[in-house]
Design a protein around this nucleic acid. Sequence first.
DNA 1: AGCCTAATTGATCGAACGTCCAGTAGCAAG
DNA 2: CTTGCTACTGGACGTTCGATCAATTAGGCT
Lengths: 198, 198
Amino acid sequence: MIDATLRSLERHGRDGASIRRISAIAGVSSGLISHHFRNKARLIAAAYETLAIELQETLYRDSARGGGSPRERVSAFIRASFAPSILEPRILNVWLVFWSMVMRTPAMRAVHDRTYRRYRSNLGGLLQAVGRDRGVRVRARPAAIALSALLDGLWIELCLSPGTFRPAEAVMLCESWVDALCGGALPQLLQARRRRPS
Amino acid sequence: MIDATLRSLERHGRDGASIRRISAIAGVSSGLISHHFRNKARLIAAAYETLAIELQETLYRDSARGGGSPRERVSAFIRASFAPSILEPRILNVWLVFWSMVMRTPAMRAVHDRTYRRYRSNLGGLLQAVGRDRGVRVRARPAAIALSALLDGLWIELCLSPGTFRPAEAVMLCESWVDALCGGALPQLLQARRRRPS
DNA sequence: AGCCTAATTGATCGAACGTCCAGTAGCAAG
DNA sequence: CTTGCTACTGGACGTTCGATCAATTAGGCT
């Protein structure tokens, strides 16, 4: 049922957030949806949480599969973020609907804050591990904020107009940023003390 | 009339994209809008183009006012991107509506491609000027893509949940990236030849 | 078998939507 | 004054929406 919601949002964007459309895709009556989720907002919120968790698990799993070294795990994470299955412009449709509700309904804001905190926490951990490997102490929070913003910004633009640049370029831009970070070129993102002797 | 459209989208998000609501705000009859713009899609597209151009002019004007040196102009551009008037979460509402239509109607995609190309062109020019000042040859296109993605990603997250981090942190993250760029720490974003002797 | 609860249906309601169009008002040109 | 044209009004039409609810079906428990 949540699956039908996501598929409807993919296909029709905001117009897909209609109980009637969703029930048609799910093959059930419209009344049933209003019965299980009390109203439309709850259904959308549940779909949001499901998609966010599922996406993060996919990314985290792919990054863990990426190899032993922390740097390789970050690379796998970045590559996975621009994998064809993630890059589907139709998925952006879904997120746009969710984001537009985040600012309107407190329940959606709660889901957003919770899932994004987890996302940044994962990313910060990966980056800190890379830093430890290279002898720099990465400040996890701002580093994760920056890389997640870079990933999101590139992903959105790629979905909006896929012809502007290639996914490989997006990967390169993120990798360059990580290289600069653990090369010490972003001093504001490192702890002040215990700089490794050059 | 276009102004009323933008105000309606700010206030009500996607639900504001209704001819009846817009005509009420504009103080005219609903029929008049269908008379001047043939249908709703044309009205929204016109509003999109107006907002995009107006925003870019604001940013470019602020950056030009930022001072003499290219580096100061980029700083002013970054600060302007996170100025309170730009950071209004209500403005994100408007962009989300536009973006959701970019993927559905070719006319909106055309407006998006056109305005974003100009945006990146401006940004690339600024970054190249900074590079010239510091003796590095910046590749304008990928550099502009990266910085605009970083700006957008941070801006979106700030609008979605303003409590996650402060605008000053967003500015710092962008400034750090620019410093890394013109410090030579992002070699993939520089022309290979004519590196200045260290 | 009998019963209770939960799942499920489909009709119905009022509201809001986009588009259309007959009609009014203002104004410039003949 | 008349004619033509444009700006503009506001109601009608058909559609779709979210929510509600009485009625029906299914399934486990005694």
